[in-house]
Amino acid sequence: MEIRTPRLTLRSAGPDDLEGMHAVLSDPRATLWWSTPPHETLEQTAAWLDGMIANGPDHPDFVIELDGRVIGKAGFWRLPDVGYILHPDLWGQGLAAEAVGAAIDHVFATRDIESLTADVDPENAASIRLLERLGFVRTGFGERTWNVGGVWKDSVFYALSRSDRKTKAPA
């Protein structure tokens, strides 16, 4: 499966994506609000990538390529919850919004699902702005929802309905 946007290619993961994803998942800046601490070894990333590959090519969870280089992932490891991570050297360029928006549009076009969800750390202001720009609305808050490396994290919950995406999709 492959999706092309003006600057990016979103595609199913493969074994050759190991080094690119390890560069993202081992960076403490990228994983500051991720569900795991930074990956310390290629083996950790290989196990993570194997899980992504095992979902199969029709699963809407994608590696993100920019100019042929893997720079992150966007999509749905488990529907309806969207997830994304991007190498920090590329933050602030609108690439995450472009990738996540494409993954969302793909799911709404190919799945009989009425709403999507997101779980974000309340301290992750950039991710909150991204979700809200894509039309997500806040639905709740949870304390101590994630234990990442021995540290409890809170969650802000968001949802995006199919009809809201149609009316609020960025031009």
Rank of each mutant, 00 (worst) to 15 (best):
A96E: 09
I128L: 07
G94I: 05
A99V: 13
D105N: 07
D119F: 05
A74S: 13
V100H: 05
G72D: 10
I113P: 09
R111D: 11
K73I: 02
N147S: 15
G101M: 00
D112Q: 14
P88A: 05
W146D: 12
F136P: 01
L116F: 02
A126S: 07
R129A: 14
L95T: 02
P122S: 10
W146G: 02
V70Y: 11
D112R: 12
K153A: 09
G68L: 04
D105M: 01
A97E: 08
R111Q: 14
W152M: 15
L66W: 06
W91M: 04
D119T: 12
D105S: 08
G75S: 10
D105G: 13
A118Y: 04
V70W: 07
G75N: 10
V107R: 00
D119P: 07
A96K: 10
A125Y: 06
I113Y: 06
T145A: 14
F76L: 05
I104C: 01
V70D: 04
S115G: 13
Q93I: 00
E123N: 14
T110C: 06
V100E: 01
D81A: 11
P80E: 12
A109Y: 13
V82Q: 00
E98L: 10
V148Y: 11
D89W: 12
G140Q: 08
D81E: 15
N124I: 05
V70S: 07
P80F: 04
G142V: 07
K73W: 11
A99C: 13
E123K: 12
T145W: 04
A102Q: 13
E143L: 12
L86H: 00
L90T: 04
A103P: 06
D105V: 03
A118P: 09
S127M: 08
P122R: 14
Y84N: 03
V151L: 12
L79K: 04
R144Y: 09
A74L: 09
D105E: 15
V120H: 07
I113Q: 05
G101L: 01
L130A: 04
E132F: 06
E143G: 11
I85E: 04
S115W: 13
G135F: 07
L116D: 01
T145D: 12
A126I: 00
G75R: 13
L86C: 02
G68T: 03
F108S: 12
T139M: 03
T117S: 14
I71K: 03
L116Y: 01
E65G: 00
G75E: 06
W77F: 14
G68I: 02
T110D: 03
L79E: 06
R144K: 15
A102S: 12
L131A: 01
V82N: 00
A118V: 03
I113L: 14
A103F: 08
E132K: 05
R129F: 02
E65C: 00
V120S: 11
T139C: 09
G72H: 12
L90C: 04
